[in-house]
Design a protein around this nucleic acid. Structure first.
Length: 491
RNA sequence: GGCCUCUUAGUAUAACGGUUAGUACAUCGGGUUUUCAUCCCGACAACGCGGGUUCGACUCCCGCAGAGGUCACCA
């Protein structure tokens, strides 16, 4: 049974750089009919951020990464918050004490710092085991006493070579110089990540540990603990970093990495986000670019995960976003896309009937990159735009004509459109084509004039569609207002 | 500094000893008898360097360089 987990610490929001380590384990588990677990690693009380867990859960739900066990829903291995599993860690730690592989360390932190500095000055790599206190050799009973008295518990390392297999990075090995007496249980009684995750992954029967490559250098220490505890380790799947757009650093909050939910609030569809991130550092060997969740579940494979860092490219994410907006409209219809647009319309839109907004959506959807584009691209459908003569007179197709000429053209257009009995797309299209002949203007000239006069927007859908949606009265009145303004200005 | 990892166009990637080194985003040009966009067509653009192995190397081996990670009572 494949079992994977996403194990964030609740220190803030999830950004693009770390959400991939939720997506990949999800895919790995679910494609094999396995379980995906959400475990909250909240052992660092100092960095704990209130509400972060809720935000994490919200983010996962939004992306469609629903977990089978874990925070919020419980499961057979409760609790899923590490802060509530103290006793479990202590039980396992005691085992190490009993076999002489853990000791209570009375060295004050300041002293450790001194050692560190001294070693640095002497240009030798700092290892705590080089400064191992006499208490490291105490009997299990005495160790327990010292531990209970408040000393942190350290692992007693045995320097040796380790080699292991990583599903992404391949066969890896290190020398004995990386093994150290790492802290297992802190002074506050809570375990460090280094110890807690080993215990939890074992207890929760995790089959694949999917995490960032930054843990690679700690691997030998983890292997030593698995060995001392005499338990089998899960498979290791190390994910390369997601790099920031500039520089070569991994994407991080400090460098302004946006939260995943920020992109949601911009109106990027979760399908697009999932698609983009899944393909950042993974491909199925074909030239496919667009994947649905079920396609990902079908095609994802660990052995095609890239082993070098991948740079986050917001432009490509935006491209994906546009693709998905059109895909949903084309495949599922206007209602399906409309259902996603809540909160993305201009304020003025909300006093109009839903049907009207849907009509607008169906003529503008193919130029949306993100749903929030609706706010800036559709306002003239809901509010009479302010007349901006400069926009007309400076337009590249119109600037060679005088204001009088423009006004006269608008008069002709208005006159012809007024004759339309049945104000619909087809009639309008026919009328516009007729006007083209009548005025002997190029399409770009005549249509730009009418388009801008009625929208005063930098761009808009095809004229006959816009006109049909705006309605006869509204459209003609805008046309005439623009004409009057042109005439007045010309006087 | 020690240890570990990585290295194909600006970006994401394909190739698994023999290809004019493919694709997508971005950029630039053109078309789809209206703007913007969509869609279509085209162009630009890459195997970090040096040695081997081989008839033949992006591909295998060894060096080097560059980049990244890590060396916490953080995860």
């Amino acid at each position: 049974m494949i079992r994977t987990r996403f194990a964030p610490s609740p220190t803030g929001y999830i950004h693009i750089g770390n959400v991939r380590s939720a997506i990949y384990p999800y895919l790995i588990a679910k494609q094999a009919g396995g379980k995906f677990i959400l475990r909250i690693e909240d052992t660092d009380r100092a960095r704990y951020v209130d509400g972060a867990t809720d935000l994490i859960m919200e983010t996962l739900h939004w992306l469609g990464l629903d977990w089978d066990e874990g925070a919020g829903i419980g499961g057979p291995n409760e609790p899923y918050y590490q802060s509530e599993r103290k006793e479990i860690y202590h039980t396992w730690a005691r085992k190490l004490v009993e076999i002489g592989r853990a000791y209570a360390d009375p060295t004050p932190p300041e002293k450790v710092d001194e050692y560190r500095k001294a070693d640095k000055n002497a240009k030798i790599p700092f290892l705590f085991r080089n400064h191992r206190p006499a208490e490291a050799d105490l009997s299990p009973e005495e160790t327990m006493k010292l531990w209970e008295a408040g000393a942190p518990l350290r692992f007693k390392a045995e320097p040796k070579n380790y080699s292991w297999h990583d599903e992404v990075m391949g066969d890896l090995s290190t020398g004995p110089e990386v093994l150290d007496d790492i802290i297992l249980i802190k002074k506050d009684g809570l375990p460090t990540y280094n110890f807690a995750h080993i215990v939890d992954d074992f207890e929760m029967e995790v089959s694949h540990i999917v995490r960032g490559v930054e843990y690679l250098s700690s691997m030998p220490n983890y292997l030593a603990i698995y060995e001392a505890l005499n338990i089998e380790h899960p498979k290791f799947v190390s994910l390369p970093h997601v790099l920031a757009p500039q520089g070569n650093k991994k994407l991080s909050k400090r460098d302004g990495a946006k939260s995943v939910v920020d992109y949601r609030d911009d109106g990027i569809l979760p399908e697009a986000m999932l698609n983009y991130l899944a393909c950042l550092g993974w491909n199925d060997g074909t030239e496919q670019e667009i994947y649905t969740m079920s396609e990902l579940l079908e095609k994802f494979s660990i052995d095609r995960i890239q082993n070098s860092g991948a740079r986050f490219d917001e432009t490509k994410l935006l491209w994906q976003s546009g693709i998905w907006i059109r895909k949903i409209f084309d495949e599922q219809g206007v209602d399906a896309l409309y259902a996603r647009t809540e909160g993305f319309w201009p304020e003025s839109a909300m006093s109009y009937p839903e049907k009207y907004r849907k009509k607008i959506l169906s003529i503008v959807y193919d130029r949306l990159k993100v749903l929030s584009d609706l706010r800036t691209m559709t306002d003239y459908f809901f509010e009479t735009p302010e007349i901006d003569l400069e926009m007309l007179t400076r337009n590249k197709f119109l600037k060679k004509m005088s204001e009088q000429e423009l006004a006269e053209l608008l008069r002709i257009v208005s006159e012809r459109l007024s004759e339309i009995k049945d104000w619909n797309e087809d009639e309008l299209q026919a009328a516009f084509n007729e006007l083209l002949e009548k005025t002997a203007k190029k399409p770009a000239e005549l249509f730009s004039l009418v388009r801008i006069s009625t929208s005063f927007a930098p761009f808009s859908p095809a004229l006959h569609l816009t006109a049909a949606v705006l309605g006869r009265e509204n459209f003609l009145s805008r046309l005439n207002s623009a004409r009057s303004a042109l005439l007045n200005d010309g006087m």
